[in-house]
Structure formats: structure tokens, C-alpha cells
Computed example of a mutant assay.
Amino acid sequence: MLAIEVGPVDVARTRFAVPPLGEAVQALRVAAGVQVGGPLRPWAERIAPRYERLREQVPAVGALTALFRRGAYNADFIHPPPPSGSGGFAAELAAVRAPPLHRARLELARNPAGLPTPPRQVQRILGAPDVVARLADALEASWQALVEPHWPRLRAVLERDLVRRAGHLAAGGWAAALGDLDPRVHWRAEGRSGTIEVRTGPRAAWDRRRPDGEGLLLMPTVFGTLISYVEPPWRYALVYPARGVADLLGPGGAHTGRRGPGPAGRPAPRAGAAGAGRARDDDAAGRPPRPEPGHRRQPPGGPARRRPGHPHPHRPVRPLRPHTPGRSPGRGLTTAGRPAGPPETDT
């Protein structure tokens, strides 16, 4: 188990980030079946043909997925935490390409401990003198195929979670920020200081770390799970699942624009219109169900009106489509996909 001992200064110096490279790595883990899909299983099933084409076109993708492990060491240079002031995916990918070959060899030698012997094609790629460049190319191809077409809307989900959690940290400290981060993360207060306990690995062994006033880097993820970074030279970091992922990528979510079955065989409420919580309130109060999309209830004296700029209450949900450069990704966001006026973050 991991114990990160923090003090008052660490609260002020904790930063948040939305790293696109991390989402590409985690999306590839889900697509490869290395990571349990959970609410992302429908997404993994939908993109399975695209993933198989990716493996055929870029053989190094198979070598990259052969390195993925759950609950054990993964080569650090493949998925480093984003540097402060990250310039997006291109800047993070440049950091992947930067390590010298001897360091990459050491990490790749440590990575497969306990894994089955990989196929010969994978061994040839991992033993090649240009292995760093080939694995970086595989990451870039995975980003382009799996994540980039939908990045503006995915980033909006991540930044919404980030803004919410940054507000909790500023208003209530670690207890408020970590309360619903992940069931495996707990806050133990000790006066003005305390310990962030991350329950991974054997329960009898504690790995105690101190950021020494540098704070943490907190990163929400759509495709990933709880991940901790405590290895030098990088800053201590926690990756945690963002809220609202199932609504975006799960069945009946905005990714497909389709409606999945609901309780008792009824159609599930549409995301973005009358949400699931609102529908349950209606049932509990004994009120009649809302009209189906396409049916307009008109009050006496004329057709129903809506305020300019407000979405129609029964308009079908827009499916998650690739973003067209130069167009705004959605209401309430700038063209860069950021909510207006967020706290200081690294994206």
C-alpha cells in the first residue's frame, strides 16, 4: 500500500492536468482487453474492428500492448506524467521519444517480469535499435485512431471533473477533494497535515512517500483506472476515473445516440434531455411520463415556445462525432475545449 504524507503547503502547490497521451494509452489498454472495460465495455466492443485494423497496419501496437500489465510495473518512458505547462499531445509524445536507448532498455527489461514470453515479432520490435521511436509511433497511431476524433468532447468531461475537484480542494482541503476520488483512496488527517492512503498491493507492506512541499498532480481519466506515480524524476501524481464517463461512452450515451433498455423493459431516458435522475423523480411522484421525442405538447393558445439558445427538451442527443477544426466543440466551452475561467491547470 502507498502512503503519501502531505502538509499544508502541498495543498497550495497541487496541480491538475488533462493529459491526452495518458488517454491514448488507457484507451489502448481497454481496446486490447488488458484493462477491465466496466462501463466502457460497449465502447470497446464498438471499436474492436478499428483496433484490429490498427494492429495490422502498425505492428508495433502489438509490441506496445504486450508490455501492458495490471498492478505491476509498466515501462515509465511509455506513459510519463505530463510536464508542467504541457503543450498537448505533441509535446507529451516528444517526451516519450526523448529517453536514451540505454534507459529504455533497462525499463523494457524490467517490464516483462512475470509475463509470458512474447511472440518473436514482438521480441524483434522490442530488441530493435529504434524501439523507442517505434513504440512512440504506435502511441501516435493509437491516439489518431481511438481518441483524437472525439477529443474535444472527452476533454470537456475531464475538465468538468477537474474544475469540480479543484474547487473541493480549495474550499475543503484534502478531505473534500479525495472523498469520492476512488474507493481505494483514503485521507487520514493528522492535525494540519495528514496521509493519503492508496490501497494497492499487499496490505501488510507500506510504501511511505513525501512530496516535500511540491504537492501532487491530479489527473482525471476517461479510459483509465486508479494509477499512482511516485518514481523519480517525476512529480508525485494520481490518475483517477472521471465522473460522467458511462453517460458519454456507455450504452445509450452520447457516443452512440442510441437508447438502451431501461428498467422493466422501458426505453432508457436520453442523456442530455430528461436525465435518468429526473425520470426516476417523475415515476416516484406518480406524474405521467414525458412525451416521446417528436411529440410536442402545446399549451392553450399556441405552440410551445423555448428561450433562444436553449436546447429543445425533446431533441435527439447528438452522437459523438469527430471534431471539425475551427468549429466550437460545444456550449459553455471555448474553441480550445476549456470551460470559461477554470482554476490554474496543466493541460
Results as ranks from 00 to 15, higher is better:
Q57W: 04
V34C: 07
P42G: 09
P20D: 01
Q26G: 08
E45T: 08
Q57L: 14
P19I: 08
L40K: 10
V25C: 04
Q26F: 05
Q57P: 03
V58W: 02
V58L: 09
A63V: 11
G71D: 04
R41G: 13
L67Q: 12
G33P: 04
R69Y: 13
P59M: 11
A72F: 14
R46I: 11
A72S: 14
A63H: 07
E23S: 03
G37A: 13
Q26D: 14
A17W: 01
R46K: 11
G37S: 14
G33Y: 09
R46D: 15
V18D: 14
R13F: 08
I47D: 03
A63G: 08
V58F: 01
L67K: 04
Q26R: 11
V9G: 11
I47A: 03
A72D: 15
I47P: 00
V18S: 09
A75I: 01
Q26A: 11
V36M: 09
R29M: 06
Q26M: 08
T65L: 04
A44Y: 05
A72L: 14
P59R: 06
G33L: 12
V58Q: 12
N74W: 15
F68G: 00
E23N: 05
V58C: 13
R55Y: 02
V61L: 05
Y73M: 10
R41M: 15
L28Q: 00
E45N: 10
Y73A: 11
A66C: 13
A27L: 10
A12H: 06
A24T: 03
G33W: 11
E56V: 13
R55I: 02
A32D: 05
R13C: 06
R13H: 07
P20S: 02
P42C: 10
F68Y: 14
L54N: 06
R46G: 13
L54W: 07
P59I: 14
R70H: 13
P49E: 06
I47V: 15
W43G: 01
Q57T: 10
V61E: 03
P42Y: 06
R50W: 09
P39M: 10
A17V: 03
R29L: 01
G37E: 07
Y73H: 15
L28M: 08
L40S: 02
Q57C: 09
E52T: 08
F16G: 02
P42W: 07
A32S: 15
V25E: 03
W43C: 00
R15W: 07
T14H: 04
R15E: 08
Q57G: 09
I47Y: 00
R46V: 12
D10A: 09
R13T: 05
G71E: 04
E56I: 12
L67H: 00
A31H: 05
Y51Q: 07
L21G: 00
A48W: 06
P20Y: 01
A66H: 06
L67S: 02
L21H: 00
Y51E: 07
